[in-house]
Design a protein around this nucleic acid. Structure first.
Lengths: 363, 363
DNA sequence: TCTAGAATTGTTAGCGCTACCACTCGCGCT
DNA sequence: AGCGCGAGTGGTAGCGCTAACAATTCTAGA
C-alpha cells in the first residue's frame, strides 16, 4: 500500500524522529519523490538508500528497515533513467522481430520474456514488417536506449545495421536462420535441412510432382531460404522434374492467401500431386478450402505445411508438417543473453535447436 | 554509412578546419561518443547539436550540415537515458497485456505500435499471465522508466496498482473491458452486450438449451464478465432454463482445451443443443473434433465462438461468432495517448468500439 | 545611420542516480 | 597499547543530456 500523505514529523520505526529542523520535506505537488527525499526522511545518506535497493546485503538490518519504511511512506519509485546514466547499465533488452502478429515470433518473445523478466530485465520490442531499412532505423533508435542485450530475428541486415550491432559492445543473439557468420551468438535451426527432410519424406511416400507455395517477400530471407532448399532437394531427389514454385509475393500470411495459392496451383500446375506450403497457415487455408470443395486430401492432392502450429494436428485430415522450436528459440536466446551479460562465459554461442518432421494424414 | 575512423584533423563540409589545438578528439576505444564529441568536431556548442537533433528548424542550414557531418563521422548514437533525465520525457510507452501469445493482444499491440513508432515513441511490453499481483509488480517496474503513457489491458487492478497509475500523472488507456470508472481513458467494447447479442441470436434461431464453456481464471475479468452476461441473458430470454457453464479453470486457451470442454459438455450436459464458447479457439477445437467424430454441426450440436479469428470463416462449417475490433483497440489507444501527451485535449476519452455479430453456418 | 526585434548560437546549472573512495567503528590479535 | 580488519556508512564527482536564459548576429525598417 502506497501513501503519499503528510511526511513532516513522521516517526521512523526505531523511534528516532526524523530531522525536524532539516531540509524541508514538503514540496510542490508537481515535484516527484527522489532518492534524496527518501534518504533525508530515513536519516541516512542517499548512497545508503541506493545500496538498500541494489545491494541490501551491504546494509544493516536496522537501516534497511528505516529505508523501507521511508520508501513506502513516500511512495518512492526509483528513476531508472538516472540509474542507467550513472551506472551505464539499462537492465533492458531490445527485441526486433518481423511482426508481432505472427504466432511464431510471439511464442519466441514469450519465451524470451519468461527468462528475462525474472532476472530483472525489461523488454523493448520493435517490428520491422520484413523491411531491412525499417530494421536499421529500429536498431538505431533502440541503441539510444543503451540496451544491455539484443535479440533479433534473422541474420541478414543492412551493412550499417551490422556495424551498429557490432559496435554496440553488447551481446547480440540472432535467431531463426542458420548462418555461418553470426554477428555474435545465434539460435535457430536449418531451414535448408528442414525443407530437405520434408521433401525427402514426400518423395519417399511416392509423390513425384511436388509444388512449393508461399510468399517470398524480399526482406524475408527465411522464406527465400526455404524456396531455394526446395529447388535443390527436388533436383537431387527427382532429377529431371520441373521445379515448381508458386509465389504470392507480398500478400500477408493468412488462410486467405493459402486459398489463393491453392487456386493458382490448380490453374498453373495441375500436374501437382503434393502441394508443399512454406507455412502451416497457408496449408490450413488450402486444406480447409479443398475439403469444402469436396476434394480428397491426400487422395486428390496431398498437402504439407511448415511450423507445426497447434491447428496442424487438429485439422481433418491432420497436417503433415515440420515442427520448429519457437518458444525454445526465445528461452535459449534469453539464457545466452543472461550468461553473456553477467560475463561468465565470454564466448558467443551457436545453438542449433533442430526441427522435427511430423508425418500426419495430409501427405 | 557509419565510419568511426580517425577523426583528428578532419575537415568539415564548409572547409573550416576543426579546432586542431582544442580538446583532444582521440579517446580510449572504450569511451563512447557523446554529444560533446560531436559538438567539438563540428565546432559548435553541445546545445546546438542537441537542437540540431530535436528541433532542426531552429538551426541554420549551414550549421545543420556541419553537425550532420560530425554525427556520421563519429557514428554518434544519442544516449536517450540522459535525454530522458534532462528533459523529463522518455518517449516511451509501457504496454501491459495478459500474454503475448494470444493473437487478440498481439493484434492490439501491432495497432499500438503502428501508431506510436512513427511518432517517435518506443514500446515497453510486459505480460501478466492473468495475474494481478504480477501486474502490480510490472507496473511498478515500468514506472521506474518514467513512460510518457501507459496502455493496459483490463480495468481491474490491485489497489496499489491503481494508485501507482493515478499518481504517475501520465495518460493511461485501459482496454478491452468496458467499465464506468476508468483510471483515465478507456477503449473497448461491452463484453456484456456482445454476449447478450449472441445469446439473443441463438435463442432467436430456436435453440433452447445453451451451455457456455470457457476458462475462467480468477485474474481474467473479461472471461468472468462474459460468463455473468451469459447467465443473465439466459435467465431473461429462457426463463426457467438452467444456466449451464462448463469451466476448464486455468488451463491454457488452445484447441486442446476446446476438445476437453466439448467432452465435458457431452458428459455433464447432454441436453445441450448449442455450445457457446468464450473464445473462437475453443470453438475451433470443438468443431474440428466434433466433425472428426462424425457429429453433425449444427445438426447434432450447434457451436458458437467469440472473437472472429480468421479461422472462424474458413472452418467447415463456418463458425458463428462475435467480431471484436482488436487492432482498432490498439490504434485508437495509440491515438488517444498521442493526443493526451501533446496536451491538446486534456480530457480523458471513453471510446466504445462496439462489436459485430457474425452469423454463419455453425449455429 | 541607427535600432527594435527576429534569428541563431552559447553558457550555466542541473536532472536523479551510482562509482569510487574515504571514513568511522568495534573487534580480536600481537 | 597499538594494529589490522571488515562491516557499515557518507562525501564527492560525475554519467550525457537539455531547460532556461544570455549573448550575439542579422534584418528591416525609421
Amino acid at each position: 500500500m502506497i501513501e503519499t500523505a503528510s511526511v513532516m514529523g513522521a516517526t521512523a520505526p526505531d523511534g528516532r524522529s526524523t530531522s525536524p529542523g532539516g531540509p524541508a520535506l514538503t514540496r510542490r505537488a508537481t515535484r516527484t519523490i527522489t532518492l534524496n527525499d527518501v534518504a533525508s526522511l530515513a536519516n541516512v545518506s542517499p548512497q545508503t538508500v541506493s545500496r538498500a535497493l541494489r545491494a541490501p546485503e551491504l546494509v544493516s538490518e536496522r537501516t534497511l528497515e528505516r529505508v523501507r519504511w521511508a520508501i513506502s511512506t513516500t511512495g518512492y519509485v526509483p528513476n531508472l533513467a538516472a540509474s542507467n546514466l550513472a551506472s551505464n547499465r539499462s537492465r533492458t533488452i531490445a527485441a526486433i522481430i518481423p511482426t508481432i502478429s505472427a504466432s511464431v515470433f510471439a511464442d519466441a518473445l514469450h519465451g524470451l520474456d519468461a527468462v528475462l523478466t525474472p532476472a530483472g530485465y525489461q523488454l523493448f520490442i520493435g517490428s520491422t514488417d520484413y523491411d531491412l531499412e525499417h530494421e536499421e532505423n529500429l536498431i538505431r533508435a533502440f541503441m539510444g536506449r543503451r540496451p544491455d542485450g539484443m535479440f533479433i530475428v534473422g541474420t541478414k541486415h543492412t551493412a550499417a545495421a551490422t556495424m551498429l550491432l557490432k559496435n554496440a559492445r553488447i551481446p547480440v543473439v540472432e535467431a531463426w536462420n542458420w548462418t555461418d557468420e553470426p554477428i555474435d551468438s545465434l539460435v535457430g535451426f536449418s531451414n535448408h535441412d528442414a525443407i530437405e527432410a520434408i521433401v525427402e519424406y514426400v518423395v519417399g511416400k511416392g509423390y513425384t510432382h511436388p509444388t512449393f507455395a508461399g510468399s517470398f517477400r524480399p526482406g524475408d530471407s527465411r522464406a527465400v531460404d526455404r524456396q531455394q532448399s526446395f529447388a535443390r532437394s527436388v533436383q537431387r531427389l527427382l532429377p529431371g522434374e520441373k521445379v515448381r514454385v508458386i509465389d504470392s509475393g507480398t500478400s500477408s500470411v493468412d488462410l486467405e492467401t493459402g486459398i489463393a495459392l491453392l487456386d493458382r496451383t490448380l490453374a498453373e500446375a495441375p500436374e501437382t500431386d503434393v502441394l508443399m506450403f512454406a507455412s502451416d497457415v497457408f496449408a490450413a487455408g488450402a486444406l480447409l478450402e479443398a475439403r469444402r470443395r469436396g476434394m480428397s486430401v491426400p487422395g486428390d492432392l496431398a498437402i504439407t505445411g511448415f511450423g507445426d502450429f497447434e491447428m496442424a494436428r487438429h485439422l481433418v485430415p491432420t497436417l503433415t508438417t515440420v515442427s520448429v522450436p519457437n518458444r525454445e528459440i526465445g528461452t535459449s536466446a534469453g539464457r545466452i543473453l543472461l550468461q553473456r551479460m553477467v560475463g561468465d562465459t565470454a564466448d558467443p554461442e551457436l545453438l542449433d535447436l533442430g526441427f522435427e518432421l511430423m508425418p500426419r494424414e495430409s501427405a
